[in-house]
Nucleic acid binder design. Structure first.
Length: 298
DNA sequence: GTTGAGCGTT
């Protein structure tokens, strides 16, 4: 068989690219992957059955169906994760890389000695890294310290290090934490949290944790009670959560749908306009809760 | 002039 090219495209409707075959008429997967990074195989639409068919792949070598590639357009297969998902992961990493850092925030310093001044704080915390701001909170009338303050660093790494340990300041052990005003899980948690729709009542938090562990570290599983046929799973890594969005997964034989968990404070009343007991009780119920809904429900 | 596991006058 002489020099031959087969036509390969990412999608049936996209413009194909010609990929060279080998002397024996086969096509190397590596040739395909050279043009379509991440490709793991080819498929094509069988003209007779109109069904998609896989191209035989043996040890990196793609074999022509019926020993003839013909004039068909072959479509690239990507591993399990489809192409779109890989793009999303790449995009997510790119954003992270591009950002290159995480924003710092004020840290509350708890347990300060009454005598500790802002200068003391600045001197102490500067040993960890560049300090942007320090405050000691004082009673407005007396000027006495309230025993706590705030500090902000330039670098997120410094902040992480400072939070991780206790601090001996002027003879007392002090803690640095994210203040409550910043610790609300809205923004940072959103992208790590998925909404698991179509749950059945026999799915326990353990079931979900066990199942989702295969994708990455699970930091939280929340199943509303009473049973409402959905759950939330939070991963340590937001990329894992994002990669699962849009998927239909089989858990305990049931197809569940994964979507983004939306932040709280959404339009509950649009979801349940005629909730028994009136909208006030509904609002109270949800305001106390951790419930979050995907945008597709709103 | 006191206190101690706390959350920020602007």
């Amino acid at each position: 068989m002489s020099e031959l090219y087969i036509r390969v495209a990412e999608d049936e409707n996209e413009e194909p690219m010609e990929i060279p075959s080998e002397d024996d008429g086969t096509v190397l997967l590596s040739s395909v992957a050279a043009q379509f990074p991440g490709a793991c195989g080819l498929r094509y639409r069988n003209p007779e059955s109109q069904c998609m068919r896989g191209v035989r792949l043996v040890e990196g070598v793609l074999h022509a169906p019926e020993n003839d590639w013909g004039n068909l357009v072959y479509v690239v297969n990507y591993p399990k994760d489809n192409k779109r998902k890989m793009d999303e992961i790449d995009a997510a990493s790119a954003v992270k890389v591009k950002r290159g850092f995480q924003k710092t925030s004020d840290l509350i310093v708890l347990g300060l000695p009454w005598k500790t001044t802002e200068q003391d704080l600045k001197d102490y915390f500067s040993t960890f890294g560049e300090v942007i701001m320090v405050q000691v909170k004082r009673d407005a009338k007396t000027g006495n310290s309230k025993g706590f303050g705030f500090v902000r660093f330039t670098d997120y790494e410094t902040q992480t290090k400072v939070i991780a340990q206790r601090h001996m300041i002027d003879g007392r052990w002090c803690d640095c934490k994210l203040p409550n005003s910043k610790a609300c899980p809205d923004e940072p948690m959103r992208s790590r949290k998925i909404f698991v729709g179509r749950c059945t009542e026999d799915m326990t938090t353990d079931d979900l944790r066990q199942y989702f562990m295969q994708y990455g570290e699970v930091t939280d599983v929340f199943i509303p009670k009473p049973f409402r046929a959905f759950a939330f799973v939070t991963f340590a890594d937001d990329q894992v959560a994002q990669a699962l969005c849009g998927e239909d997964l089989i858990i305990k034989g049931v197809s569940v749908h994964i979507s983004n968990a939306e932040p709280k404070h959404n339009n509950i009343h649009q979801l349940f306009p005629n909730f028994p007991g009136g909208s006030a009780s509904l609002a109270a119920m949800f305001d106390r809760s951790q419930y979050q809904f995907p945008s597709s429900h709103v």
